[in-house]
Nucleic acid binder design. Structure first.
Lengths: 227, 227
DNA sequence: GGATTTAAAATGCTATACAACTTTTTCATA
DNA sequence: TATGAAAAAGTTGTATAGCATTTTAAATCC
């Protein structure tokens, strides 16, 4: 008698809904980095009270997507070039760790599923399709890494990475080389060669980072150089 | 109509104050793991309204110190043995990363300061004194690591580590070996031997982890074994 | 025009209220 | 006495109103 199948459509949980909506809007670039998040304005637009908006904003601040300035409000974080570099440095180590753990007991079936997807990609593949599968693959790795805290941190960091990535959407990268990187990671994982798998993941993240930084250098508008 | 001299001498930023107070109470073991955090009760005890308490609790949930159950409230996280293992695994990699970065440009003066402190320690040193200096040293490394996001994560994880550590306060470890580990890290950092420094940090964290796990095995009360 | 004062707006918090949900208590029934 | 359903009490999540302090914008004065 726990959950009635005819129970009302959904648990409201407005805070979570507002959080997701804001996150999406920020990551997709609808709300631009640097712009202000007015509690009143957002509450008005989303047709909720200030309470869930406040809590959602604070939740976003903890992942770094939003920067809080006491008594002045919340602003969408405007990542600097160093931020992007720091994020990728951290991501590299964390994903290597995930790969290391997964290698101890690789989920064969799903890995083969992803292998097939990436093997069939080439430079004619839609950029958006690659992005989607790439996202799915990495989220899959996070879920399977077996370390609750590592998973949490990776899920946090990926939001910031995506924020940085909005800058580089139309970047002219070679899809094939990214896809190949994934296949290499998967193959070594399936073969149980942990050390090599880590190395391939290292290469893959390095390539992604390089691609983003190249884009940032070519498009300095909106990117802040600190120090 | 300016400042009433009889205005309440209250510090602003209640949320942060409540957050710190709760964090301390949890990490010090005053509020036991597993116990419930009632918004009303805490608001009452701290003489504030529910709002800052709610926000502080949510902030604590982000670091993992508190576990939120929808519609049922917030509970102080009761770490399992696997939690402790996961935390130390993550901590090891993150601190190695910090050491790697610091090694590129080591802050000589302060490192020497810490070196002296740890060099003068032996098995007769007060356990509490070692704990304090150990804490300070690691926080110092976090601050100097040069990567904003790494710093944030390390500061988060150390709270959870401390929560686990409350169990092992009276652990009968050899202070000298811990202190020696620090000196080794510092010396290799000062010498600019990054690889070795990382290795020594690895050993140091491994030793700390081993000490905690040994304690947990000898004192299974209050520790949950999952899976 | 530039500086100073005043007004408007936003945040941080308080307080109250209420619906939905949990937990506890009560109480009837086996 | 134990069991289980029904009622009561308590909490959370959200909403709304309001106030103090501070920031921001506008207005005023020199």
């Amino acid at each position: 008698m726990k959950n009635n199948p005819l129970s009302p459509a959904r648990n409201p949980d407005l805070r979570q809904i507002v959080y997701e909506k804001l996150k999406e809007a920020i990551v997709e670039g609808i709300i631009r980095p640097g712009s202000k998040l007015s509690e009143i304005e957002l509450a008005d637009k989303l047709a909720v009270s200030r309470t869930p908006v406040r809590e959602a904003i604070r939740q976003l601040a903890q992942t770094g997507l939003v920067t809080l300035t006491p008594r002045r409000g919340a602003y969408v974080t405007l990542p600097t070039k160093k931020d992007a570099e720091d994020l990728y440095e951290l991501r590299r180590d964390l994903e290597k760790m995930a790969v290391r753990n997964i290698c101890l007991n690789p989920p064969e079936h799903k890995l083969k599923h992803f292998r097939q997807i990436f093997e069939n990609m080439d430079d004619s593949t839609e950029h958006s399709e690659y992005l989607k599968e790439d996202q799915d693959f990495h989220l899959f790795l996070y879920k399977e890494c077996g370390n609750k805290y590592l998973r949490k941190m990776l899920n946090n960091i990926i939001d910031m990475i995506n924020l940085c990535r909005t800058y580089s959407v139309e970047s002219d990268v070679k899809i094939s080389s990214f896809a190949k990187g994934h296949v290499e990671v998967i193959d070594t994982l399936l073969a149980g060669d942990c050390e090599k798998a880590e190395g391939f993941m290292d290469d893959h993240i390095a390539l992604t980072k390089q691609s983003l930084l190249k884009f940032l250098e070519e498009h300095p508008e909106g990117v802040v150089y600190d120090e």
